[in-house]
């Protein structure tokens, strides 16, 4: 084991320029993704962006048409079985064997990895408040998802690949899930979390990668991403603010009439905020609000961009 850990001193996941087509559909179109050891990486993008496809490539289930991918230092396609000993996968949507009980499914999946740490499995079953004696067919959606989650989290691995793992979980269970991910990260496990629950990503992730149409459009730490974006500024000024439009980093300027002069609203890049404030000060400002972008706006901008 130690030798294997040593091998992965570099990134846990390193993918560059991945391409994958299904017939005429181009699912991946030059996707880049890097996840470092111990990192919780968010993986975001609109429906059909290629997140699940990427994860399947990283699992060696799909063979990429082009680009390079390394997982835990190995080739996901050729070293699939060896790598799978060191990682676990939780899909967001799977119809596990309807005729088996939750416990049987858990044990079958865990035993595929070798001897089972029963105490860890039982602790997770307890924490997720799961009744393992029910047949899979009779579980509610959330409970069915918990079975897949526990099967993934109960394995002792270096990398967790989670593809919308919390679909259907109630808020209480969502909190348990977040605790589990934090604990895993604390043990040094790297996590790739594909999710549409932005609050979850915001709370858990150190970095995020945003993909659109099979291509990475943004990647970095959350703080960096915030810095990259614009703040919304509104002010009421005595003098005409129209010339602010010529300042560097100012976008979408709008001027309306106001009883006290003019009402101006604009977006400004964070780096150019000091210059703008200085210019505003000379215009006799009455009200001034500066609003940092919410994460949601950030994503919506990327998701909706028709670049």
């Amino acid at each position: 084991m130690p030798t294997q850990r040593a091998r992965t001193a570099g990134p846990v996941i390193e993918a560059h320029g991945l391409t994958k087509s299904f017939g005429t559909v181009r699912a991946l179109d030059g996707l880049d993704l890097v996840v470092r050891p111990g990192e919780v990486a968010g993986f975001l993008g609109p429906n059909g962006a290629g997140k699940s496809t990427t994860i399947r490539v990283l699992l060696g289930l799909l063979r990429a048409d082009g680009g390079t991918a390394h997982v835990l230092g190995g080739d996901p396609w050729h070293d699939a079985v060896a790598l799978h000993r060191r990682l676990a996968y939780v899909p967001g949507e799977v119809d596990l064997w309807p005729g088996l009980t939750g416990a049987e499914v858990l044990d079958v999946l865990l035993r595929l990895r070798g001897p089972v740490d029963t105490s860890r499995r039982d602790a997770l079953v307890e924490r997720f408040d799961l009744d393992p004696t029910k047949k899979m067919r009779t579980y509610s959606k959330g409970n069915r998802q918990k079975v897949a989650l526990v099967a993934g989290l109960a394995a002792d691995v270096e990398l967790l690949l989670l593809d919308e793992p919390t679909s259907g979980l109630d808020p209480l269970m969502e909190a348990v899930f977040q605790d589990c991910v934090r604990e895993a990260a604390g043990r040094g496990t790297a996590v790739l979390l594909s999710s549409h629950v932005l609050a979850e990503v915001e709370k858990l992730c150190d970095t995020v990668t945003i993909v659109r149409a099979g291509r990475t459009v943004e990647a970095g730490s959350l703080a960096e991403l915030r810095r990259l974006t614009r703040s919304a500024v509104t002010a009421v000024t005595a003098d005409d603010p129209a010339h602010l439009a010529h300042l560097p980093g100012v976008h979408a300027l709008r001027v309306d009439d106001h009883p006290d002069g003019a009402r101006v609203s604009l977006d400004v890049e964070d780096t150019d905020l000091p210059g703008l404030l200085a210019a505003l000060a000379t215009l006799g400002p009455r009200h001034l609000t500066v609003q940092p972008p919410s994460l949601e706006e950030l994503f919506l901008r990327h998701y909706g961009d028709v670049a």
């Binding site: 064997w97 005729g99 009980t101 079958v108 035993r111 029910k134 009779t138």
Partner: peptide, 26 residues
């Protein structure tokens, strides 16, 4: 109607062959 089943899988239910047998048993 379905009844509650096992809280642990039988020890023999391990591996691909055992799973396939279990699924096709009926």
């Amino acid at each position: 109607t379905t009844r509650p089943g096992r809280a642990y899988a039988r020890a023999s239910l391990a591996g691909s062959v055992a799973l396939a047998v279990r699924l096709q048993r009926g």
